[in-house]
Design a protein around this nucleic acid. Structure first.
Length: 669
DNA sequence: TTTCCCAAGCTTTTT
DNA sequence: GCTTGGGAAA
C-alpha cells in the first residue's frame, strides 16, 4: 500500500531572519494567506481588499523562506499585471524576486510548447494565429468545401470560428455549443463539425496554433506524457493563480496538472468580478476548486482598503441585484467621502463637457491626470470624449479596443516575417500572395499548396511553371524573402527589407490614406527594437498586442502622465483616485446582446460592479438623455436598469446647469 | 479567375 | 460606418 509521509514546514528556521516584518505590513487575514503552509489554498478576495498586495507578499515570503525564485510560477490574466506584480515583489526584496516566473496562461503554455511541440506532431517554430487569422483559415476551408453555396445562409467566418473556439474553451462539441448559443444554425451542425475537423487538420499540416491550441495542446501534452507533466510540475514548486474566477475549464485543468506533483497551488479570485464568460470563463471553477484539490484551505479577504464607504455602499447595493448570491459585503475604515454621483447630461456633448471640466477641476485641486480613469463598456463609447480631450489638449492613453497589429497593413508586414520564421505558414502565404496583382483566392490556394508540399527550398521558384500574369510579382517577392532569410541578417534589417519591398504595395493598395499607414509602419519598426529575435517578436505581438490608441497620445511632451481611458474589461485589477463611468445607458450596460445570453444580465451587472469598485475617492456615473442615431434622428435613451432602484442616499443625482451668460441674465432682470 | 461595384447586414468585451 | 458577400465585366 502506498504511504504518505507528511513533511513539517521548514519555515521555523528561517523565520527569525526574515527581512520583512509581515505582521506589521499585513492585516491578520492577509498574514494568514501569506504565511500559509504547503498544499492547495483558495483565497476569495473582494474588490480592493489587497489581493495583489497579498500575492506579492506571498511571493516575497516564499522566496525568503527558501523557495528558489525560479520555482515559483505566477499566472496572471494579462502581461501587464504579471510585470507589475513581479516588479513590486522585486522591490520588496531588492531584486531577489526577479527570477520568479510569471505571465499569462497563454504565454506560459507557449514556453512549454516551444520545447515540446514535436512530440504532438507540431514543429517547434509553429506560428500563432490571432482570431482574424483563424477566421481567414475558416474562410479558405469554407470556400473549398462549397458549404456557403449549398445553404441559404451559412454562418460567417467569424461566427464559425467563435463556435469552434467555444468548443475548445468549454470542452464541448459543436452540437452543444450551437444548441446553446447559436440555435439558428442547428441545421448546419454537421457541416460546422466537418469544418472544425478540417480546421484542426489545416493547422497541424501548416504548423499553426490558435489561442485555444496553446492551452489545449499543452493539456494534451501533459495528458499524453505523464513524465513530462511531472517534470514541468516539479519545476514550479509553488503555483499562484490570480483572477481565478476568469479561468476557463482548460485553464483549470492546466493548473491541476501543474500542481500534480506537489499540490502547492494558491488561487486568488472573486466570483463577483467574473467578466470573461464570453471567453469561456466559468465561475463554476472557483466553486469546484475545493473539490478538485482535496484539502483546500479557504481564506477570505473582506476588508477593503481602496474605496470610501460611500462607494462600497453603492457596490454592495448593486451586486445584491444579482440572481446569484455573493456572500461578501465589503467594508472599510477609510474616512467618509463624497456620495457617488449619477449625472444625467442632456446629450453626448454635455456629457463630454462635464467629464472634461470635472477632470480639469480635479487637476487644479492637485489630483494628477493619471490617477483619474474614464471607463466604458465598449471601446467606441469614448470616441466623442477623445475628440473633446484632444481639443482641450488633455493628454490621455486608451486601453482596450483596436490593436496595432489588427490593422491590415501591419498584418501584411507581419505575414512576411511569419513566413521567414515558418515557411509552412499557409495563412501568411495566402495573405501575402493575394497582395500581388493577378493573384486572387484561387491562385493563392494553388500556390500555397505547391509551396507547402516542398521542403526546404520554400523560397525558390523552380519546379513549376508560373503564369506570366503574376510571374514578375512572384519573382520580386521570392527574391526579397530569399535575401531576408539569410541567417546572419539582424531583425531590424529584416524588417527594413520587408518594409522596403512592401512600400509600393502599400501605396497601391491604400492610395487614399497611405501616409497615415506609413507612419504606423514606422512606429511598428521602432517598437521592434526591444525584441531579441524574430520568434520572440512574433509571439509577443500575438500574445500581447500593442494598443493602437495607447500610442497615439502625444509622445512628445512626457512631462505629465496621461489620463486613462479604458474599457471596463481592461481596467480589471486597477484602481484610481477618481473614476468616471460614461455612457451608463440601458443597452450599453447591460449590452443589448447580453439579453439573449443565459446569465448575460448577471455578467453585465458584475461588469458595472467591477467599474464602480475601481474608485478610491470619487465616482461619477454619467449618461446622456438623448442620443442621435442616423435615420432616426434624436431619440430618448434611458440609464442602465441597474441604477433604477438605487436610492438618492446612496447614489446622488446631479444635474448640469449652464453658466448664465450676460445676455440671459439680462433677460432675467 | 480576378477585380470591381453594389447591396445587405451587423455592430461587445480579450488571450 | 464598416465589413462581407454576390454578381458581372474584363
Amino acid at each position: 500500500m502506498a504511504r504518505k509521509f507528511v513533511l513539517a514546514p521548514d519555515n521555523q528556521v528561517a523565520r527569525t531572519s526574515l527581512t520583512i516584518n509581515y505582521q506589521d505590513e499585513l492585516n491578520p487575514q492577509q498574514y494568514d494567506v501569506v504565511t500559509s503552509g504547503a498544499g492547495p489554498s483558495l483565497v476569495v478576495a473582494g474588490a480592493g481588499t489587497g489581493k495583489t498586495r497579498t500575492l506579492i507578499f506571498r511571493v516575497a515570503y516564499l522566496v525568503e523562506t527558501g523557495v528558489p525564485p525560479d520555482h515559483i510560477l505566477l499566472l496572471t490574466f494579462t502581461r501587464r499585471s504579471a510585470a507589475e506584480m513581479l516588479n513590486r515583489a522585486s522591490q520588496l526584496l531588492d531584486g531577489r524576486c526577479q527570477r520568479v516566473r510569471g505571465g499569462t496562461f497563454h504565454a506560459y503554455a507557449l514556453s512549454i510548447l516551444r520545447r515540446h511541440a514535436p512530440s504532438i506532431g507540431y514543429p517547434r517554430n509553429f506560428t500563432i494565429l490571432d482570431s482574424g487569422d483563424s477566421a481567414d483559415v475558416i474562410d479558405v476551408l469554407r470556400t473549398a468545401s462549397g458549404f456557403h453555396k449549398s445553404d441559404k445562409r451559412f454562418p460567417r467566418k467569424r461566427t464559425i470560428y467563435s463556435i469552434i473556439s467555444a468548443c475548445s474553451n468549454g470542452e464541448q462539441d459543436v452540437a452543444e455549443v450551437v444548441a446553446d448559443k447559436y440555435p439558428q444554425f442547428v441545421d448546419m451542425i454537421d457541416k460546422i463539425g466537418i469544418l472544425r475537423e478540417q480546421y484542426h487538420q489545416y493547422k497541424l499540416t501548416h504548423g499553426l496554433m490558435d489561442y485555444d491550441d496553446l492551452l489545449s495542446k499543452t493539456v494534451l501534452l501533459f495528458e499524453n506524457n505523464r513524465a513530462l507533466r511531472d517534470s514541468e510540475s516539479a519545476r514550479c514548486r509553488h503555483v499562484l493563480v490570480d483572477e481565478y474566477q476568469d479561468t476557463n475549464r482548460l485553464q483549470a485543468r492546466m493548473v491541476a496538472h501543474l500542481a500534480s506533483v506537489h499540490r502547492n497551488v494558491m488561487a486568488v479570485g472573486d466570483d463577483a468580478q467574473s467578466i470573461y464568460g464570453f471567453r469561456g470563463a466559468d465561475t463554476k471553477n472557483i466553486f469546484q476548486y475545493p473539490e478538485i484539490f482535496e484539502g483546500t484551505t479557504i481564506y477570505k479577504l473582506e476588508h477593503n482598503y481602496r474605496s470610501t464607504q460611500q462607494i462600497l455602499n453603492l457596490a454592495n447595493t448593486l451586486i445584491e441585484q444579482s440572481t446569484v448570491r455573493y456572500d461578501k459585503k465589503l467594508f472599510t475604515e477609510k474616512p467618509d467621502g463624497e456620495l457617488p454621483a449619477i449625472v444625467g447630461a442632456a446629450d453626448d456633448q454635455y456629457e463630454c463637457r462635464f467629464v472634461c471640466q470635472m477632470i480639469m477641476r480635479l487637476r487644479e485641486e492637485g489630483i494628477p491626470l493619471h490617477r483619474v480613469a474614464v471607463l466604458f463598456r465598449n471601446s467606441h463609447n469614448s470616441f466623442g470624449l477623445e475628440i473633446e480631450l484632444n481639443r482641450r489638449n488633455i493628454p490621455f492613453i486608451k486601453f482596450g479596443g483596436l490593436k496595432l497589429n489588427e490593422a491590415a497593413h501591419i498584418k501584411d508586414v507581419l505575414s512576411y516575417l511569419k513566413i521567414l520564421e515558418n515557411p509552412r505558414d499557409a495563412v501568411a502565404w495566402t495573405r501575402v500572395l493575394q497582395l500581388l496583382p493577378g493573384i486572387g483566392p484561387k491562385t493563392a490556394a494553388d500556390l500555397v499548396e505547391w509551396i507547402s508540399s516542398r521542403g526546404s527550398e520554400a523560397f525558390e521558384l523552380t519546379g513549376r511553371s508560373h503564369s506570366p500574369r503574376y510571374i514578375d510579382g512572384l519573382k520580386k517577392l521570392f527574391n526579397m524573402l530569399r535575401a531576408a532569410s539569410v541567417t546572419t541578417i539582424s531583425l531590424p534589417r529584416q524588417i527594413e527589407m520587408v518594409l522596403e519591398y512592401y512600400d509600393p504595395i502599400l501605396k497601391e493598395k491604400y492610395y487614399e490614406d497611405f501616409p497615415k499607414r506609413e507612419q504606423d509602419l514606422e512606429q511598428f519598426a521602432s517598437l521592434t527594437d526591444q525584441f531579441k529575435d524574430r520568434e520572440s517578436m512574433l509571439s509577443s505581438m500575438a500574445l500581447d498586442p500593442i494598443e493602437l490608441t495607447a500610442l497615439d497620445a502625444d509622445g512628445e511632451e512626457k512631462d505629465e502622465q496621461p489620463l486613462v481611458l479604458s474599457t471596463i474589461h481592461s481596467a480589471k485589477g486597477l484602481e484610481y483616485h477618481t473614476v468616471f463611468v460614461i455612457q451608463a445607458l440601458d443597452g450599453v450596460v447591460p449590452s443589448t446582446y447580453s439579453l439573449k445570453e443565459p446569465g448575460g444580465l448577471d455578467e453585465e451587472l458584475r461588469l458595472l460592479y467591477v467599474a464602480v469598485t475601481r474608485a478610491e475617492e470619487n465616482l461619477f456615473i454619467t449618461y446622456p438623455m438623448v442620443q442621435y442615431r442616423r435615420f432616426q434622428g434624436d431619440y430618448m435613451v434611458r440609464p442602465s436598469r441597474y441604477l433604477d432602484e438605487i436610492s438618492d442616499a446612496i447614489l446622488e443625482p446631479w444635474t448640469l446647469v449652464e453658466t448664465p451668460t450676460p445676455s440671459s441674465q439680462k433677460l432675467l432682470s
